[in-house]
Design a protein around this nucleic acid. Structure first.
Length: 550
RNA sequence: GGCGACGUAGCUCAGCUGGUGAGAGCGCCCGACUCAUAAUCGGGAGGUCGACAGUUCAAAUCUGUCCGUCGCUACCA
């Protein structure tokens, strides 16, 4: 069915190992990437799905200091948590790694050196606040003081939360370090800068030519270009991070996260290739016209993936720029942005403790914030599971398998002589697979899930119309034809839902067999069909909420 | 302050290159059915598409102003 399998790089945002990730992150990036990747594999494309834990950066060192442990311990803790979450959710990585590997360091340093050699990186000196007590330079966010505009005394170096104005740290009156409370002093420090201005024209033109990208992604990116790109410092006064491969700046400087984390897509691809024993195989996904690369991220990451990373790639040369960046908006919880640190919403682990993985996957997929922020709650997740997943799909599987078990001697019946109404149902299911496929290809994952569920509803309607439980009494042969048709239709619906529901899909391998392609397969007559048990348990919302209270 | 987006049925959302009577799912009401996880199927009620003004033969869709919500603002990533 897929005459020309093509390489598809599924590049997924790197979760920051500074704390637990929440359901918003799951819905924003990891789940849609997994659904897309599973679909692409089913239609026969060669998928390479990569990501890893982002292990560097100031917040991790701050947390480590606060807890009196090393940054590496923080990173290990959360990396292990993420890996456990992916396992529980069956996120189908080809390579999930970290930015702490030797390979990543090598790839980052190679990128750095090439850009330096080509003149896209240069050195500049700036004045930055330095905390003499703890002996470190201070990121803007870690400087507090009095806002020069409104007099708010708790303003941060980047922004006053009271009046909302953007600030430079030097503007703050009475600045103090968030670490020690002492008054920091300005010291000059030298850093490498990425000359984004070099790429302004080429990126502007590239963005103009993008077709089929989500509107908000394109608007936001073009807005950056219109405002004019600024060169950005890509090194920091830190000792936690990737070493700069030239020693011009002296000690105590590292390449900063936002520059190196995006390179992870490339280094993870290389790590995967190496692990396969084919060290050059990564090129299939990064070079040439046939390869596609789709980046799954939340909207906060848009400029890194539509401006900075493409800029780096075009400066480096020879590697493909993103084919599409279907960034999602935010999942909000009762109107607020999810934030594990502020206690808004659930972490992924908490979500998995409350709901079965397929149920959680279904509920989030049905609420993906593809066009606009989407509000979600425990009640909403439970509603999706109980009223849609279990009621429409789980119950359908159960009712069909039960009837086949009872009426057809516990085995898959022969197709027999199908009537037009039977053929119509199968045609409907086959058409829904085509439609869902088109939607998945456009990364309209909510719509594709809906299409699959409509297929389930069509089978339910067919059963109500043909009434096999009645027919069985007068015309057992006709009942078997109906049930065989329904069984085949259920098999088709199962394919449409397979990218979303890996666990229950696998449970149905008996009797349907594994899903191996994006089409409905006729079942082999005679296969045993045992007495089924419900695919999905209903969620007891009252119990759930009571548990949450305690 | 600047930028981006959002505000459409009780709830969560789609529609927005302007044009057949404004949609979906769930909830609700009525009916059918009873094989199935009190599941399913059919029908129905329900919206001045945030407010105001404008452009147009025609606006939920374009423009402006206002109100409300969210996010970003380049040293969080």
């Amino acid at each position: 069915m897929n005459s020309s399998p093509s390489p598809v790089l599924v590049a997924v945002a790197w979760p920051y190992a500074s704390g637990s990730r929440h359901l918003g992150h799951l819905a924003g990036a990891y789940l849609p990437a997994d659904v897309f990747a599973r679909y692409q594999r089913l239609i026969g494309n060669r998928v390479l799905m990569v990501s890893g834990s982002d292990t560097h950066g100031t917040p991790i060192t701050v947390r480590a200091d606060a807890e009196g442990v090393t940054p590496a311990e923080i990173v290990d803790r959360y990396h292990n948590e993420f890996v456990a979450d992916w396992e529980r959710l069956a996120i189908s990585w080809d390579c999930y790694t970290t930015t702490g590997t030797e390979n990543h360091t090598a790839v980052v340093q190679d990128m750095f050196l090439r850009l330096l050699e080509k003149g896209h990186i240069d050195k500049r000196i700036s004045e930055q606040y330095y905390d003499t007590e703890v002996g470190r330079f201070l990121p803007d966010r870690y400087i507090e003081g009095t806002c020069p505009h409104c007099g708010y005394t708790e303003a941060r170096g980047d922004q006053c939360e009271d009046c909302g104005r953007t600030l430079d740290p030097e503007e703050l009156l009475d600045p103090r370090s968030k670490f020690s409370g002492s008054q920091p002093e300005l010291r000059s420090t030298e850093h490498f800068y990425l000359r984004l201005t070099d790429f302004e024209e080429v990126l502007g033109q590239w963005l103009e030519e993008r077709k089929g990208w989500r509107r908000h992604v394109l608007n936001f990116s073009k807005g950056w270009i219109e405002e004019g790109l600024q060169d950005r410092a890509i090194t920091r006064d830190l000792d936690w991070g990737i070493e700069i491969p030239v020693d011009d700046l002296g000690d105590g400087k590292r390449i900063y996260v936002w520059f190196e984390a995006v390179i992870g897509y490339l280094s993870a691809s290389k790590e995967w290739a190496e692990a396969q024993g084919t060290s050059e195989a990564w090129r299939e996904w990064w070079e040439g016209d046939k390869a596609r690369s789709v980046y799954f991220i939340g909207k906060d990451n848009i400029p890194f993936h539509t401006i900075i990373w493409p800029g780096m790639l075009s400066g480096y040369g020879g590697l493909n720029l993103p084919t599409d960046v279907p960034a999602n908006q935010y999942v909000t919880f009762k109107g607020g942005k999810a934030s594990a640190s502020r206690g808004v919403g659930l972490t992924i682990g908490e979500g998995l403790d409350l709901f079965e993985p397929d149920g959680l996957r279904y509920a989030l997929a049905a609420n993906l914030p593809e066009q606009s922020d989407t509000d979600i709650s425990v009640e909403e997740i439970a509603r999706r599971i109980n009223e849609e997943l279990a009621a429409t799909w789980g119950n359908l599987v159960n009712r069909v398998l039960s009837m086949v078990h009872k009426t057809c001697d516990g085995q898959v019946p022969e197709p027999g002589d199908r009537l037009p109404e039977d053929m119509a149902l199968l045609a409907t299911i086959d058409a829904s697979l085509v439609t869902a496929g088109q939607q998945l290809e456009k990364v309209e994952l909510r719509a594709a899930l809906r299409t699959g569920m409509d297929g389930a509803a069509a089978v339910n309607a067919y059963l109500n119309a043909t009434e096999p439980w009645k027919v069985a009494k007068e015309d057992p042969e006709r009942a078997k034809v109906i049930l065989g048709t329904a069984l085949a239709a259920v098999g088709g619906v199962r394919v449409a839902l397979a990218p979303y529901l890996p666990f229950s899909t696998e449970i149905l391998n008996d009797p349907f067999g594994p899903v191996t392609g994006w089409q409905r397969e006729e079942l082999t007559p005679g296969l045993p069909v045992g007495k089924p048990s419900p695919l999905f348990a209903k969620v007891d919302l009252g119990e759930l909420l009571a548990d949450q209270e305690s």
